[in-house]
Nucleic acid binder design. Structure first.
Length: 491
RNA sequence: GGUCUCGUGGCCGAGUGGCUAGGCAGUGGUCUGCAAAACCAUCCACAGCGGUUCGAAUCCGCUCGAGACCUCCA
């Protein structure tokens, strides 16, 4: 339990022992969504993954300060130097203010993440609320010679930075390689920049641009990397523990964040970089152009042509956690169906655990069981292994039920604590209560029906007994005969 | 074209030099009037070809295939 947490650091491309700057408060920043559309499966995987990481860090350390941005400005739709702000584009489509788009999709984002039982971060900073900080930061970069002004825009001078730093250290690139690679591709509309790989810190806005602010360089809006550098450092300090995000943001976004921060402060930015992998659907990349995207809300309702049925939020969460955060995850009906059944069995196992009776002694080793779970989580948050251990534990529970194994009162309490800690607290799963609330009347009616059926069975009138069961099944009520009489539940 | 990652049984998905991953499905049982649930047992594997090694799915090389990034993207 006290063994070290090891995590895979993209910076070193190796697993490293996690050494916090201050063990009393861990600082973590994760790139959040740009809120111009509903949350999809990719968001679900990403934020469930970082929720797992957040929960486990909270479990191991006294406090974790978790910051996640909600991007409400600045990311363009196509070319790096032309095109339109995604949010502005959506606002024209929906014919409402850009900030109305932000409000709407931000609320939807939280709605879907809440359903997935993703815990809220401490702070959700938005770039539109940090314009002065971003301007200040850009001014500082200009002063230090790492940025230049061109026609009302400001660009980061990558070549200048690369003289004393390594631009590309996160994504394993070098400027030379990028130039070579770029030579084989057509480069367009980069006349304003000194070099093709320079990136914008501030963009001049023409009058038609919906979101713009005053700056020392005229009206404009911030570049698409500066927000994360500025907001992470504002809330976590110039040097902090963990920066997370999606793999596809490794380059250029995270690389640029590092360059901006380290040029300005002269010290290391984030110590550990964590990247989660992508989602595929039936083995295919999920993408707008392929038309195979699935929104979280569609998953929960089943309202998408690729879905055979609806899958509950916890089924989705469990499914995501059954693979490692650094692996790609393939969504398919078969895979979701398997996850649904597995989650159901594990959930029922938890209920069975509650019914166990202690003995005077134990023949099982709860500590070893617990150690296996911690070992899995300490190894770069390996939730699939942890879940497999929980399934292994089901065998132990079964043996205890059958009296083939014994457990002392203390050990039983311990075992329950371990299950609860991992199932609820760390994996962030919860039991899904049926929303068709039962009340006293249904309970009494059902008991009445089951009593009649029991009487029929006692008279070996199986035709009647089966008819009752079949008819109930038609209205989605399942009757199961057990040793101590029949039980019923909604299907 | 460049940089990087990956290829595991019917499906999903861990592991990573020698020891059963796990889930779902299948098969055979136990239980049950039957069914369901639960439990027990069990089949099916490491893309291909070379190399290193006492021993490789695991390391190295090549081939084939998939994906990410190089342009906004979780």
């Amino acid at each position: 339990m006290n063994s070290d947490l090891v995590l895979y650091n993209t910076l070193s491309r190796e697993k490293e022992v996690f050494k916090p700057i201050d063990p009393n408060v861990i600082g973590m920043y994760v790139c959040g969504p740009t809120v111009y559309g509903d949350a999809h499966l990719g968001h679900a995987k990403s934020y469930v993954s970082f929720d797992l990481i957040y929960r486990y860090l909270k479990h191991k350390f006294p406090r974790v300060k978790y910051v996640q941005n909600i991007t409400d400005v600045g990311h363009l739709t196509d070319d790096a130097d032309a095109g339109d702000d995604k949010i502005a584009k959506q606002s024209r489509l929906e014919k409402v203010d850009p900030m109305a788009i932000v409000e709407k999709y931000m609320h939807n984002y939280f709605r879907d993440m809440d359903a997935l039982n993703v815990e809220r971060a401490d702070i959700y900073p938005r770039p539109s609320g940090h314009i002065p900080e971003q301007i200040e930061n850009i001014e500082s970069l200009i002063e230090k010679g790492f940025a230049y002004v061109m026609n009302g825009s400001v660009y980061f001078d990558v070549a200048q930075y690369d003289k004393n730093h390594h631009y590309g250290k996160l994504s394993g690139r070098s400027i030379e390689e990028m130039l070579e690679g770029a030579a084989n591709r057509s480069l367009s509309s980069q006349s304003e920049k000194k070099n093709g790989f320079d990136f914008a810190l501030w963009k001049k806005a023409d009058e038609s641009h919906l979101m713009q602010w005053n700056s020392p360089w005229g009206k404009g809006y911030p570049g698409w990397h500066i927000e994360c550098t500025v907001m992470s450092q504002k809330y976590l300090g110039e040097n902090f523990d963990i920066h997370g995000g999606g793999l596809e943001n490794q380059f250029p976004h995270h690389e640029c964040e590092i360059a901006q921060a380290e040029a300005n402060t002269g010290k290391a930015f984030a110590n550990y970089w964590l990247h989660n992998n992508m989602v595929t659907i039936n083995g295919q990349k999920m993408g707008k152009s392929l038309g195979n995207g699935i929104f979280c809300a569609e998953l929960f309702s089943g309202d998408n042509f690729q879905l055979e049925r609806a899958y509950s939020p916890m089924t989705v969460r469990f499914f995501i956690l059954q693979s490692h955060y650094r692996s790609t995850l393939d969504f398919s009906n078969d895979a979701l169906e398997a996850a649904s059944k597995g989650f159901d069995r594990l959930s029922k196992g938890l209920a069975r655990l509650e019914q166990l009776k202690p003995s005077s002694e134990s023949s099982i080793n709860v500590s070893d069981f617990e150690k296996g779970l911690y070992a899995a989580m300490n190894d770069d948050f390996n939730s699939p292994i942890a879940i497999s251990k929980l399934f292994d534990g089901l065998k132990m529970i079964a043996a205890l039920e059958k009296g083939e194994a014994k457990v002392s009162a203390d050990d039983l309490k311990h075992l329950k604590t371990v299950y609860h800690t991992f199932f609820f607290d760390i994996l962030g799963l919860k039991l899904e209560l049926d929303d068709r609330q039962s009340n006293d009347i249904t309970e009494h009616l059902m008991q009445l029906i089951l009593d009649f059926r029991a009487a029929a069975k006692a008279e070996k009138n199986y035709a009647s007994a089966d008819k009752i069961r079949d008819k109930l099944k038609e209205i989605n009520i399942v009757v199961k005969d057990g040793k101590d009489g029949a039980e019923w539940s909604y299907e």
